[in-house]
């Protein structure tokens, strides 16, 4: 590390789990989470020169969220891109041992994945990446009030889905 700026390897080592957790909660599956982390670290490496020491996890959360949103926009523009060449990849792969989480953790992920993207992103940024409303607003390019209302609606929807399952 020089001048308080970590190297990308240090970021991968010290904040890799954080990046993967945010990526997984946003995307809802391991394959996409891996791609998001990889692309995020490429952007981290290229952007390190412009990084100003401050909230590193805030900066990383913003990068991984942007990578996710870019991918979502790309799919909306070119829906055929979402269809993989390999027909076997249409079906979700069986989870590897590392991906199997017990009980309600799966339910939380399922509920998060079922949330519309506009609610899921602020919920993940707030409750997984621990970002302030201002940071989320800046990352998403929306007013703080919009973050507040989307986050609240997202949590209400989550609560409904989780309580349906629990009942």
């Amino acid at each position: 590390m020089t001048d308080g700026v970590p190297t990308w390897e240090e970021i991968a080592r010290d904040h890799g789990r954080f990046l993967y957790a945010v990526a997984y909660r946003l995307s809802g599956n391991d394959d996409e989470a891996q791609d998001l982390v990889q692309e995020s670290l490429i952007r981290v490496r290229r952007g390190l020169e412009r990084y100003e020491p401050g909230s590193l996890e805030g900066w990383l959360a913003r990068i991984v969220t942007n990578v996710f949103l870019d991918e979502m926009r790309r799919r909306k523009r070119r829906p055929t891109d979402a269809l993989p060449d390999d027909p076997e990849r249409v079906l979700p792969a069986a989870p590897a041992a590392d991906e199997v989480y017990v009980g309600l953790s799966d339910d939380i992920q399922a509920a998060l994945s079922a949330l519309p993207e506009e609610f899921r992103v602020p919920v993940v940024m707030c409750d997984v990446a621990d970002q302030s409303y201002e940071q989320i607003a800046e990352a998403l390019g929306v007013p703080v009030g919009t973050v507040r209302s989307r986050l609240h609606r997202g949590r209400k929807l989550l609560r409904e889905m989780l309580s349906e399952h629990a009942a």
Binding site: Y20, A33, Q34, I108
Partner: peptide
């Protein structure tokens, strides 16, 4: 209600990437 949803997400364990992932990255 919203507190329970918030706690559920915050207290869920972080997922772990599969073995060998970091070498590939």
């Amino acid at each position: 209600e919203v507190a329970s949803a918030r706690t559920a997400v915050r207290s869920a364990p972080w997922p772990e990437p599969p073995a060998g992932f970091w070498d590939r990255v």
